[in-house]
């Protein structure tokens, strides 16, 4: 996860408000890039070999592989833009892109 995203979830121990001049923000109002998504990755867990290629190729770095879980590919849909790179890179083609809205 990017530093900005982490910052929003874990504030510094003593956050204080300061006046700043210019276009500055510490909370990024448009951070929910998941709202851009038109196609959504859908994993066929029967076919998945848990290799982690999707996680490594995700440009937003928001896929985790949790091998102990039956639904082992965990995607953070707050930030998944539906780019489809994971589906494209998957060596067993177990990820399909399905229409979420259109």
């Amino acid at each position: 996860m990017t530093v900005m995203q982490k910052q929003q979830e874990k504030h510094t121990p003593k956050p204080q408000k300061f006046r700043v001049y210019g276009p500055v923000a510490t909370v990024y109002g448009s951070s929910n890039t998941g709202s851009w998504r038109i196609l959504c990755p859908k994993v066929d867990y029967e076919a998945c070999i848990k290799c982690g290629t999707c996680a490594r190729s995700c440009p937003a770095n928001i896929i985790d592989i949790i091998k102990e879980q039956s639904e082992c590919v965990v995607i953070d849909f707050d930030y998944c833009k539906g780019c489809g790179i994971c589906a494209n890179e998957c060596p067993v083609k177990c990820i399909s892109m399905v229409v979420e809205r259109g």
Partner: peptide, 11 residues
């Protein structure tokens, strides 16, 4: 990086 801020956001 210890105290991140976002500079030059769309205004």
């Amino acid at each position: 990086t210890e105290d991140p801020m976002f500079i030059c956001d769309l205004t």
